Computed example of a mutant assay.
Amino acid sequence: MLSFFKKPVFSDYRLLFGLYGLIALIASIKTVFVFGSNNYSIFYYSLQHLIEGNSLYNEYPAQYEDHYHYAPTFAAMFSPIFALPYSVGLFLWHFLFASAWVYAVYRMPLTHRQKVFAYWFALQEMLTALTNSQTNPLIAAIPLFAFICLEARQPFWAALFIVAGFEIKIYSIVAGALFILYPQKIRFLAYTLFWGIVLSLLPLLFTSPAKLLWQYEMWFRQLLIKSDHDKWANTSIHKLIHLFISPDITTAAIVGGGILLFCTVYIQVRKFNEESFRMLMLASILIFQVIFNPVSESATYITAVTGVLCWWFYCPQTPLDRVLLISCFILTVLSPSDFFPAYLRDQFTRPYALKALPCVLIWFRVLYIMHTYTPAAKPIQQPVSTL
């Protein structure tokens, strides 16, 4: 069976890109013609509310359930999609984000074989992400694009990606931790300030300054409400700690502890010039922003799985690493799918947040490797260039 999958056709980009296009098509057909999408409805009507001067953060039960949790900039950034008829925009939505992730992986400094492995490994996780019609594949791609730009010594564009990620989902700002590993730090911070101002003011194309300031006030209030989330309704290290250690440990303590551990690798200054160290830092960022997010859910794990792949390509690949990778594929990637026994999913993986467990363990493994061992740089198939 394994020899069958070693045939050249399975490493052909045309097949792989076609498969990702197919799952995007499946997600679009299901949401447009069968199930609909409450998440996309939240996104879609945000532009209308912004133009009309209504609060983006009020409840609109006639249009969608739940609340809008994004920055006002989000509505303006995706206005070309939201300006289309609802069904057309929803149909294109999945293709937009799937292609962003696929292209980001393609541009990474990886060998052809590594990219092929990444596409096959993450295929089911991408389908899980797309069926929710959220922005998670794009959130997974943004740190990759920022990394590519920083490797190419293009802090201007790296800053754009990081600020854009923050405007979509605030925890994407974690990708900004990369800039410490590179030269031109002051220039990067200046560019970040520039793009922060530009993107924050982008909604002025659709609303007045006074209304925009009011929208930002509502956003900050909504973030406080969002952060006060039921500790049992997430798939992250928070739930694992509350289940297996103590339910009294606060979210702030968990996140604070995670940040301290995350930052310990900065003492390895001499390793900043090693490509493998920087790639492991990228892996740490991608996994961290999911497992320490107190409102993470299954669909967000395309980001963490992308981090797992970055770790795998630059870790020692010991028997322990192989066990961790296999456990990630089974518990993280396959557990939400029909390939996984429903009884085990309903009785164990969901109640005990076992989807998060391999990623949590791999994150600690990443930190250990960064402190104790940096593998030799892997051969690069092509030089990193401009996007």
Rank of each mutant, 00 (worst) to 15 (best):
L324R: 11
Y57L: 08
F147G: 08
T131W: 06
G165E: 07
V88G: 13
D228F: 06
A190R: 10
L223V: 07
T386D: 11
P351M: 01
P375C: 06
W363N: 10
M279N: 12
M77Q: 05
R107E: 14
T300K: 06
R107D: 06
F145V: 02
C263M: 14
L320V: 10
Y70L: 00
S41N: 14
V198M: 13
T251F: 08
A376G: 06
R365W: 10
R278E: 01
A76R: 11
F78W: 13
V384M: 13
L361D: 05
D228K: 13
I380D: 03
I326D: 05
V323G: 12
H94E: 04
N39W: 03
L260G: 06
V333I: 15
H229L: 04
I81W: 14
G36F: 00
V366D: 10
L344C: 09
A283S: 15
P209R: 12
I237S: 12
L240V: 14
L150Y: 03
T111A: 13
Y45C: 04
F166P: 00
P80F: 08
I254K: 06
Q184L: 00
L331M: 09
H242W: 15
A377F: 01
V32G: 11
S133R: 05
T207M: 07
P247C: 02
T332V: 04
N54S: 09
T349H: 10
P247G: 03
Y119I: 09
H242S: 14
L286Y: 01
S236L: 14
V9N: 03
A24S: 15
T192S: 00
I162A: 08
L160K: 04
T111Q: 15
W311V: 00
P80C: 04
C310Q: 04
F74S: 07
P383Q: 03
F78L: 15
K30A: 10
A75T: 03
G53E: 05
W93D: 05
Q124H: 05
P319I: 01
D12M: 03
T207V: 09
T111K: 14
L387M: 14
P137S: 12
I170A: 09
G176C: 05
I369P: 01
F4V: 09
I23E: 10
L361E: 05
F147S: 03
